[in-house]
C-alpha cells in the first residue's frame, strides 16, 4: 500500500512538469516586454539589461524554462504579475486561504446536507418527500450559481438588508457566497447519492443483511453507506479540487479577494505570469485531490486495495487453496 501511494505521489511530478512546460511555452510565445513594464519611468539601457538579467530573460527558451521551474521548486517563486508587479506567491498567500475556506466550507455543507437528503430520498423512494427533494434538487441544479447569487443578494442583501452585499468582513458575509457555492453542489450530490443509494439497496448483499434480521438503520449505516460512498468519493474529490481553486463567478459577484477574482482579472488583463501561476496551482490541487481520491478508494474498497497488493494476494491465495485441498 505504501509503495502504491509513493508511486502515485511520484507520478504527480511528470504531470506537473508537463503542465509547467505547456504553460511556460505559451507565455514565452506571447508578445510583450515585461522588463519595460516593470521599469516604467526608470528606464535606461543599463537598467534594462540588469533587470533582464535579474529576471533571467536574457537566457534562451530552455534557460528560462529551467529557471522558471527552479524558482518555483526552490523558492516557490512564480514570478511577478505584469499588471501589479506584486509577487504572485504573495497574492496566493493572501487569496488562496480565502478560496480554500469558502471551498471547504461549501464542500462540508454539501456533504452534510446532500448525503443525508440523497439517502433519505432513496430510502423513501416514490414518497412525497422523495418527489419534493428530487424536484428541489432539479431546480437548484438547473439554476446557475450566479443567478442564485444575485437572487440572494437582491433579496437578503438589498431588500431585506439582513446580509452584507460584498466582502468577507463578518461572519454574516460568509453566508451568501458559501450558500451560492453550496446549493447547486448539494443538488448534484443529492441526486448522485440517491441514484447510487438506490442501486446499492437493490443489491443482493443488502437482502442478505435483511435476512439476517438487521435493523434498516444498521443496514443503511453499515452495509449500504460505505458501498454508496465509492462513486461519490470521485465526485467529491473533483468538487473539492475545483471549489477550493475559487469560484470565478461567485467570487466576482460577492467581490471576494480570492483565487477566482485573481484569475479572472488576470485573464482579462492578459497577465500571463498570474494565469500561469493559477493554472499551475489548480493543476497541482487537482493532482493532489486525484491522488487522495485514489487512496481513499483503496481504504474504502478492499477489492481495489487488493489490486495494489496483487502479488501478495495471489501468493496467499495459492497457499490457502492448497491447504484447503489438503
Amino acid at each position: 500500500m505504501l509503495r502504491y501511494i509513493l508511486k502515485r505521489v511520484l507520478w504527480v511530478i511528470p504531470v506537473m512538469l508537463g503542465v509547467v512546460i505547456i504553460v511556460f511555452t505559451i507565455t514565452y510565445l506571447t508578445p510583450g516586454d515585461p522588463v519595460m513594464t516593470i521599469l516604467g519611468s526608470g528606464y535606461t539601457p543599463e537598467r534594462y539589461a540588469a533587470k533582464a538579467a535579474e529576471l533571467g530573460l536574457d537566457k534562451g527558451y530552455f534557460g528560462q524554462l529551467v529557471a522558471y521551474i527552479w524558482n518555483i521548486i526552490t523558492r516557490l517563486d512564480f514570478g511577478k504579475s505584469y499588471n501589479s508587479n506584486i509577487p504572485i506567491v504573495q497574492e496566493f498567500a493572501a487569496r488562496y486561504p480565502i478560496s480554500v475556506s469558502i471551498g471547504l466550507l461549501s464542500c462540508m455543507l454539501i456533504a452534510i446536507i446532500g448525503l443525508p437528503l440523497g439517502i433519505l430520498s432513496a430510502v423513501k423512494q416514490y414518497s412525497v418527500l422523495d418527489y419534493s427533494l428530487t424536484t428541489l434538487a432539479l431546480i437548484f441544479a438547473a439554476i446557475p450559481s450566479f443567478v442564485l447569487s444575485i437572487l440572494g443578494l437582491v433579496i437578503f442583501g438589498v431588500k431585506l438588508g439582513w446580509l452584507p452585499v460584498s466582502g468577507l468582513d463578518s461572519f454574516k458575509s460568509w453566508i451568501l457566497p458559501v450558500l451560492a457555492n453550496t446549493l447547486p453542489g448539494v443538488a448534484g450530490i443529492m441526486r448522485m447519492t440517491r441514484t447510487t443509494m438506490l442501486e446499492v439497496i437493490r443489491q443482493d448483499y443488502i437482502r442478505t443483511a435483511r435476512s439476517k434480521g438487521l435493523k434498516e438503520s444498521v443496514i443503511l449505516r453499515k452495509h449500504a453507506l460505505k458501498n454508496c460512498l465509492i462513486p461519490l468519493v470521485t465526485i467529491f474529490g473533483g468538487m473539492i479540487a475545483h471549489t477550493t481553486a475559487g469560484s470565478i463567478i461567485v467570487e466576482n459577484i460577492f467581490n471576494i479577494r480570492g483565487m477566482g477574482t485573481y484569475l479572472y482579472s488576470a485573464i482579462l488583463a492578459r497577465d500571463y505570469p498570474v494565469i500561469n501561476g493559477c493554472v499551475l496551482l489548480i493543476a497541482f490541487v487537482v493532482c493532489v485531490m486525484n491522488l487522495l481520491v485514489d487512496i481513499t478508494y483503496a481504504f474504502i474498497d478492499p477489492r481495489i486495495r487488493s489490486q495494489y497488493e496483487k502479488k501478495r494476494v495471489t501468493r496467499k491465495k495459492i497457499t490457502t487453496t492448497k491447504a484447503e485441498v489438503a
Binding site: 439476517k212 434480521g213 460505505k226 458501498n227 478492499p302
Partner: peptide, 19 residues
Amino acid sequence: RGNEISMIFQDPMTALNPI
C-alpha cells in the same frame, strides 16, 4: 429472520457485502 428462519441466496457472488 436469521435466527429462526434464515435463507441462502441463489448467487453467492453478490450475496456477500464486498467491503
